[in-house]
Design a binder for these strands. Sequence first.
DNA 1: CTGAAAGCGCTTACAG
DNA 2: CTGAAAGCGCTTACAG
Lengths: 347, 347
Amino acid sequence: MNPTIYDIAREARVSIATVSRVFNNHTCVTRKTREKVLDVANQLGYHPRALAQSLARKKTRIITVIVPVISNYFFMEVLAGMQDKIAEYDYDLQIFNVKLADNILNQADYIMKRGWGEGYVVISVHLADSEWQTLKKYNVPVVLIDEYYPGFDTISVDSIEGAYTATRYLLQTGYRNIGMICAKADSKPVMDRVLGYRRALEDFGIKVIAEQIVTGDDMERDGFTENNGYQAMTKLLACEPCVDACFCASDIQALGAIKAMRDANKNIPIIGFDDLEFSEYVGLSTMRQPMYDMGSLAIEKMVRRIENRESEVKHTVFSPDLVVRTLAPDYDLLAVRKEESGTFNSR
Amino acid sequence: MNPTIYDIAREARVSIATVSRVFNNHTCVTRKTREKVLDVANQLGYHPRALAQSLARKKTRIITVIVPVISNYFFMEVLAGMQDKIAEYDYDLQIFNVKLADNILNQADYIMKRGWGEGYVVISVHLADSEWQTLKKYNVPVVLIDEYYPGFDTISVDSIEGAYTATRYLLQTGYRNIGMICAKADSKPVMDRVLGYRRALEDFGIKVIAEQIVTGDDMERDGFTENNGYQAMTKLLACEPCVDACFCASDIQALGAIKAMRDANKNIPIIGFDDLEFSEYVGLSTMRQPMYDMGSLAIEKMVRRIENRESEVKHTVFSPDLVVRTLAPDYDLLAVRKEESGTFNSR
DNA sequence: CTGAAAGCGCTTACAG
DNA sequence: CTGAAAGCGCTTACAG
């Protein structure tokens, strides 16, 4: 077994308290004593066990991330942002997956009660207000990403604004008959995207045609699938009068929509939402969610909250960036990328 | 603060030992006592703290994953496999990132000494034999993914066979002048891929032309970049005699190679290696590494080793699967996917 | 500057 | 079946 603080203390002829002090960089240790301890520790290959430290300090220095098992590019980018940022602090990351099919509240409850984390970053988990309320009672630091609840720090993206920007861009480019592909319409992000789309049309004095807001029939994953996009675009192309451009609630659907266009031998401009990895390769224009920054910011917020439990709850809403790649012509791989700068505001 | 075992014991008028027994499902507790304890625990919202259990049991029930920060689809897929599999066992996953730029051995050393994990799964980290040897001395369970070292359980993919399969497929399809794009040639996977390519050509009685094995000049990330592939294909297209097909050491380079072909207005069949997410969208044929299965298997191996430290070290080598999407014609999004079944053998 | 001792929240032989 | 007690490997007032 690995040596413990007792082994070092014995060999170095000091007390365990002194050994502990050396490893905690207490200044009040003679240089000579410190060196002796470090010497012995090195020889024996000693390093304090984080576990024991955590129990004694009542601090684990762990930030726990709770994500749905559906691993996708969004989570990966968010995690990358978290991982890079956490390296600046003295915390470690622990990841727990929750199964969307099972009761999420129970799973979150279980994870939190076990108490590994000093705080919990919850990504893309959507609960009812009463359920968030339940978690709130644990009185433990929580940061929500891609969700909003007044009682916790949250980080999300302004879907209304994003949809508005995308639609306005199409309008400014000259299109006047713009359809929309949406997903299951009962979640806030989806409703907001429809709202932004409508507002843009209205601001340009164009009447919204309900039949031109479509979704596919396949409602797996709330409609956020290629298949759904394919079906939706097929519907949209059958509309009268014909749409001449399209705003799509997600990139994954936009991809299906593009395939539908190819199969139908049509080609109208489309703008998606997300900016997934393949979007760049495919040359899809889209509203980019600053996933990396969202993850990075989540860690900052979390550390701040752990260190000051009473600080005021804050909600950050990012504005998605319009990334124009190729609007219509040829969805080939060679599309030159051109990005417009985006804005970011904290409320 | 949350209640502890003492609070429950006091309220339920039993000893803490009994409370502990109830939560550990010891059978030797009267039903009446058990219910009383559970009742009180429920009321007070008690759940054993994993941290304290870990210290007392000297088992953390955590499996730690060490991955380079460069987050890519390979890691994500592997992690997904691990996450799904670990749900079958009573272990949790903890993820640590190592910075490739810094000394990896030091980082791994630090992570292991802190002792969170009962075992460590190391993904895509490449060390010298002597360095692995150093880690070996800690005498802690380790499973390597995408690397081979005799002293640890390892999971890797047969690059020689993969390259051979890809090249043979091109040969069987009728191409006779096949070039190869490779990356930095000092890593084993890359050398193996070149070897497999050569062997296939030789088996078909075709002379290997050294000039037709190229790589780009941009050696960032050991050449595994789009840019490198672009440069390499540009070189390859300038070769005399002209190559009529190409095997490429990685999908990311193949993507760059495709762009180079477009820019040069050429189009020869190409087969990549990896099967990244975008490969499917782009219709790139490739040698698929069973990333998900590799992750899943890593957990199985790890749990087995944690529970039986002395079990024999085993190396699993997966055979990559040839995924034929579209060989040459039009790299459009509509390529129909056709997969050939692959094999899998354990050595 | 250093040590003895209590405590972090559990588990687990050992008795009874 | 149940309890008293020691122990897991540390930290941290409290004295000196």
